[in-house]
């Protein structure tokens, strides 16, 4: 369970990117976060695994107060949370399999870490993760020779191998074509259902968000302006999330 309570995030330059966020997400939910560019979606996501620190308020992940963690505790938290990026963030020069294997590294003894020696068991697990994403046949191909969609699946396989309970995905389909984007969204759906993982996705394609996610969180200039089931999102609500500023200005004048 993830629980934001009165969370505020102020960047070092004084910009307040999140204002008084209250949000509870239960284990196994599939949540899409939508909103304009600069609304604070990435910031929200990155607070969950402490890639960013929150300024005030409290943020509980599985009953642990995230802002109080230090050093190796942060790394332990992150072990349990998978993160997916728009640009995949794979190591380009090495094979898909090796990219997936990297997710075992933090738990390996030092000498294995330095030499990069993996056990057979780890290799099998990594291959299984690739198999689950249907790209087992690309296991020994360098990732820079894969298409964008295939690369995103390797990234997903890497995250799966990490066996997280939560997956944070920051615009995972933004650089994919519509068909591949749907496939990747289906992948998320499958992982979410089969493995009961919490999935939180930042996404700009409203149609995809409504089609695949079960819950929608709308953010506007650092505030949550909608939070409810995907099935109840109407055009007025979308207008409110995306054009709220315009609306406010019009009514204000």
């Amino acid at each position: 369970m993830i629980k934001f309570q009165n969370v505020q995030k102020k960047y070092d330059n004084g910009y307040v990117a999140l204002k008084d966020i209250n949000l509870t997400i239960d284990q196994g939910e599939y949540v899409a976060v939508i909103g304009l560019s600069g609304a604070g979606k990435s910031t929200l996501l990155r607070c969950v695994n402490r890639m960013h620190d929150i300024s005030t308020g409290s943020l509980l992940v599985n009953d642990v107060e995230v802002s109080k963690l230090k050093g190796s505790e942060i790394r332990n938290l992150r072990r349990g949370i998978g993160m997916i990026f728009q640009s995949f963030n794979l190591v380009n020069r090495i094979s898909s399999l090796k990219n997936v294997l990297v997710s075992f590294v933090p738990d390996m003894p030092m000498w294995r870490k330095v030499l990069g020696l993996y056990t057979k068991q780890q290799k099998i697990e990594a291959l299984e993760a690739l198999d689950r994403m249907n790209i087992l046949d690309k296991a020994f191909i360098r990732v820079d020779q894969l298409s964008g969609g295939q690369q995103q699946r390797v990234a997903l396989a890497r995250t799966l191998a990490q066996k997280p309970s939560i997956i944070l995905a920051d615009e995972p389909v933004a650089s994919l074509d519509p068909i591949t984007a749907k496939q990747v969204m289906t992948d998320f759906q499958r992982i979410n259902k089969e493995m009961n993982m919490t999935v939180i996705i930042n996404i700009h394609h409203v149609d995809l968000a409504l089609e695949y996610a079960t819950r929608i969180v709308g953010i506007r200039s650092g505030e949550i302006v909608y939070d409810g089931p995907a099935s109840e999102v109407t055009d007025e609500i979308l207008d409110h999330i995306y054009n709220g500023k315009l609306e406010e200005e019009l009514t204000g004048n």
Partner: peptide, 27 residues
């Protein structure tokens, strides 16, 4: 060097050294 993979490794709980070893070294 490209820091994207480095960042991804930090997000999955690698220490700075191990993220360097696995994300930057191959580059």
């Amino acid at each position: 060097a490209d820091l994207k993979a480095f960042e991804a490794m930090q997000s999955m709980g690698h220490s700075t050294f191990s993220a360097f070893r696995y994300a930057i070294m191959p580059q």
